[in-house]
């Protein structure tokens, strides 16, 4: 098991002194090499799940395990990516990709070699000495993926990494991410509110309820071409899956109202 949430509840103190429950009793597992998406209405605690996996903060109740080990702090086996590329504007692309390796006792030459290798995987060779502002949004996200892959994480966490891209770039970047992730057999957790994206890219989809978020459904996407969303997109079943999730989320909304 690459990632496991066991009865995880997270409460945050608010300004007024009350507590707000972000996620409630969340239990799920992600297997080695699996691509799992988490969808749900906004504010349902999707990002909380991601932050707890990365070890930025711990759960209030329950436990999070990565590769069978309990997460107790920033976890070196986890790489995460946000909607923002979080590239350091003062570094060129290759130095940005090296960033994650700098606290790991990897020497300079090995870092550079590793970074260049990932830049090639992410089709950014030739851009290594450009600065982030010189690259398009899609290329910057690919550079961020290269940085994430450079630390050779056991799990990749993606928090809506495509939502700031325009529609066409989004399809292409989804495709290139899916390919690279499949090639390297990385376990991936994708947080998204784009239902089609979830269906196109995942093996399995977890549907969360409104806040406090808990898993209300788990859908196995039984379609080929996970490594090529552009091809999977042409399958007619995709629409059925999206519709199924849509219904689930709608129903949940009504239940709350």
């Amino acid at each position: 098991m690459a990632l496991e949430f066991r009865h995880v509840t997270k409460r945050f103190p608010t300004r007024t002194g009350k507590e707000v429950t972000a996620v409630q009793d969340v239990t799920f597992t992600v297997n080695q090499g699996e691509f799992v998406s988490v969808v749900g209405p906004s504010g349902c605690g999707k990002s909380t799940i991601l932050s707890m996996t990365a070890g930025l903060y711990g759960p209030t109740e329950g436990e999070v395990l990565v590769s069978g080990e309990r997460v107790n702090g920033p976890n070196p086996h986890v790489g995460f990516m946000l909607q923002k590329d979080l590239l350091l504007p003062w570094r060129d692309i290759v130095s940005n990709v090296e960033f994650g390796l700098e606290s790991r006792g990897v020497d300079r030459q090995a870092r550079r070699a590793r970074a260049m290798q990932e830049l090639v995987h992410c089709h950014l060779e030739g851009f290594e000495h450009q600065y982030p502002y010189q690259l398009s949004g899609g290329m910057r996200q690919r550079a961020a993926l290269a940085r994430t892959l450079a630390i050779d994480p056991e799990i990749i966490l993606l928090d809506e990494p495509f939502s700031a891209l325009d529609a066409q770039t989004k399809l292409l970047i989804q495709n290139s991410f899916a390919k690279v992730i499949a090639e390297q057999r990385k376990t991936t957790l994708l947080i998204t509110h784009d239902l089609a994206e979830a269906v196109l890219m995942s093996d399995r989809i977890l549907v969360l309820s409104e806040r406090p978020g808990s898993v209300i459904a788990e859908i196995a996407v039984d379609l080929p071409h996970r490594d090529e969303p552009l091809r999977r997109r042409t399958l007619k079943e995709v629409g059925d899956y999206a519709a199924q999730i849509f219904t689930l989320l709608k129903l949940e909304e009504k239940a709350v109202a």
Binding site: S51, A54, G55, L56, P74, N75, P76, V78, G79, F80, L82, K84, L86, L88, W90, F99, G100, E102, S103, R104, I151
Partner: peptide, 28 residues
């Protein structure tokens, strides 16, 4: 940017490294 600091934390940078590699250049 808190997210940059979080990224650095996730990459196990210590306080001094976060200052030198994130905060210092951000404030330049």
């Amino acid at each position: 940017d808190r997210d940059l600091v979080n990224l650095a934390r996730a990459y196990s940078l210590n306080r001094w490294q976060i200052f030198r590699k994130i905060e210092m250049p951000s404030t330049l």
